[in-house]
């Protein structure tokens, strides 16, 4: 099945204004950025921006070429979801009165997530997993009443050669 989204991994100089330059190129063409994750790499001089955009929109070739023209962009790779490993972190606060609390804890354990905070009638939990697994857990938690939900946006690396 062809992926529904493009994942661009953009290596940039770690300095003020770079994210604005990158995001402006998408904005100018009316492309909505689906998710975005930015952090320095192992080399502090550089940061990696992982941008996810919808495939349905115009082909990405022109945007990639324009991104390459930015002085502070070092390298861009498009990561095909079929050839990359992807992770995302999600934090959720969910309604958890005593009568359903067990069910929620069981779900979290099934997904190998963690309970990170406990309130009187609420639980806060975290899950770092493939983004689709996050979607699954989110869907299963929704009937209990999600109070707050925050996702980081996906990060990705190319799959390693096996042969």
């Amino acid at each position: 099945m062809p992926p529904k989204y493009h994942v661009l991994s953009v290596l940039v100089e770690n300095r003020a204004g770079v994210l604005a330059r990158v995001s402006a190129l998408f904005a100018r063409r009316g492309y909505n950025i689906y998710s975005l994750a930015v952090a320095p790499t192992d080399d502090e001089r550089f940061s990696r921006i992982t941008v996810v955009v919808d495939v349905e929109q115009a082909p990405l070739e022109q945007v990639v070429k324009q991104l390459n023209k930015l002085i502070h962009v070092i390298k861009i790779s498009e990561l095909d979801p079929r050839d990359s490993v992807e992770r995302e972190l999600m934090l959720v606060t969910v309604k958890a009165p005593a009568e359903v609390r067990g069910q929620i804890i069981e779900l979290v354990e099934l997904f190998e997530g963690r309970i990170i905070d406990v309130g009187r009638d609420e639980l806060a939990l975290s899950l770092d997993e493939h983004p689709e697994r996050l979607d699954d857990l989110e869907e299963l938690l929704r009937p209990f009443g999600i109070i707050d939900l925050q996702r980081t946006g996906r990060v990705a690396l190319p799959k390693l050669e096996r042969s």
């Binding site: 003020a16 204004g17 604005a20 330059r21 402006a24 100018r28 023209k69 002085i71």
Partner: peptide
Amino acid sequence: TLGITRGVTKHNEL
């Protein structure tokens, strides 16, 4: 100035 001229310069710098 940087924000305004970003789209109309090859590069700009503060």
